[in-house]
Design a protein around this nucleic acid. Sequence first.
DNA 1: TCGCGAGATTACGCCAGCCTTACAGCGGAA
DNA 2: TTCCGCTGTAAGGCTGGCGTAATCTCGCGA
Lengths: 228, 228
Amino acid sequence: MRLLVVEDNALLSQLLAKGLATAGYETDLLATAAEARAALMTTSYAAVILDLGLPDGDGLSILRELRHRKDPTPVLVLTARGGLQDRVNGLRSGADDYLVKPFALEELVARLEAQLRRPGQQLGSSLHIANLEFDLRNRQASIDDQPQVLSSRETAVLELLMRSKGRVVSKKQVEDHIFGLSGDVASNAVEVYVHRLRKQLSDKGAKVRIHTIRGVGYLIAEEKRDPV
Amino acid sequence: MRLLVVEDNALLSQLLAKGLATAGYETDLLATAAEARAALMTTSYAAVILDLGLPDGDGLSILRELRHRKDPTPVLVLTARGGLQDRVNGLRSGADDYLVKPFALEELVARLEAQLRRPGQQLGSSLHIANLEFDLRNRQASIDDQPQVLSSRETAVLELLMRSKGRVVSKKQVEDHIFGLSGDVASNAVEVYVHRLRKQLSDKGAKVRIHTIRGVGYLIAEEKRDPV
DNA sequence: TCGCGAGATTACGCCAGCCTTACAGCGGAA
DNA sequence: TTCCGCTGTAAGGCTGGCGTAATCTCGCGA
């Protein structure tokens, strides 16, 4: 985890770097608003610790710029300005937390970790194939970032296939996944759902194909279209 | 947005409820750890404001239980214990923020909103889908920049759907959001409000659809009209 | 080339879940 | 006081997803 610390007091920033290193974080130290701006344009950090009293500019405006371009990086504001209005302004500008100097390093770390813990940072809970995305958390499929309306059975089939991306899924597995233990399936229900799902996906323009492997099962993969 | 306030001081909790109402939040007030536990098992809130000094138990253990079952609801801890170690413990137990009494209501609201400002919905205090806009600050819906008159329940439903754009919202969530604990909803009220909201939106020309996913919930999305 | 069988496609009836409408109670405004 | 809009309830109608089954298609081996 790499953090950015923007603080012009050299002594304090050294102290921070040391304390954060002990807690298991690497840090980049910067002392001016200009440097911070540049760094935030090009590098992504797990979080930013931002002092407001910088020699060459207002720290708050950095924060506002960051938020203006929809950058969700957690920002913990650090400042000597302890007034209520300062704190409220800081938070309203998009800060995730606000700490008034002097503070205990331990509290800083605790607050930092409270921010890093927040969900939404943690990606990886969604699967992609071409322009098709499946959000495992909400069991929600999207094509080209457009959320799709699928029935619950269709969603179940798609979920299994996506989770097994790159592997073949047997019909029995699909059956178990859909019907669970109550599986009295006296029909070709699985085939029907695969069919319905295929139709949905192609209607909605997903560049994805569900291949049939005879006698084995199904396999989902990116659609390869031969050039004409 | 419905919040849960767990605070045994009746005077303070009344004050909080009033202040939060002014800021546009509905609140459920509870005074004991037992009640809070029960409520958090069955109802989902946008955030929880939790006092630690409860008569019948330790507030921190409620917090830990919540996190133990992976509930990501933002929790803002409120307490008279101002010691560093208390604050660090609170945050380490999974609190998202920590405020020491006495505090200014304004700071509470600012910190609360910093927490509510979560994935997707960055600072931009308004949400858009097609020509429909929802201003989170004043809870005001507009279509083609024309402010719309919606009843408070309709607004509540729309707010939840808009905040959850791209995700399916279950009927239970809508119910919690509208009624909170006060709700002995022995009817299909949610369906009725969704219906009324749909009517409003389509009458006013919003290019937005509220999809029904049977057995799951509702999903708001831009209206796609199939080309012939 | 033919025949077989796995899988694809289509059609259909059922029914839980949802939609729609109507209505009565409530509370604020005039 | 009356009026009127919002609210929650209830009843009944409707429909889309479900599972089944009949039929069609096509890959593959003989």
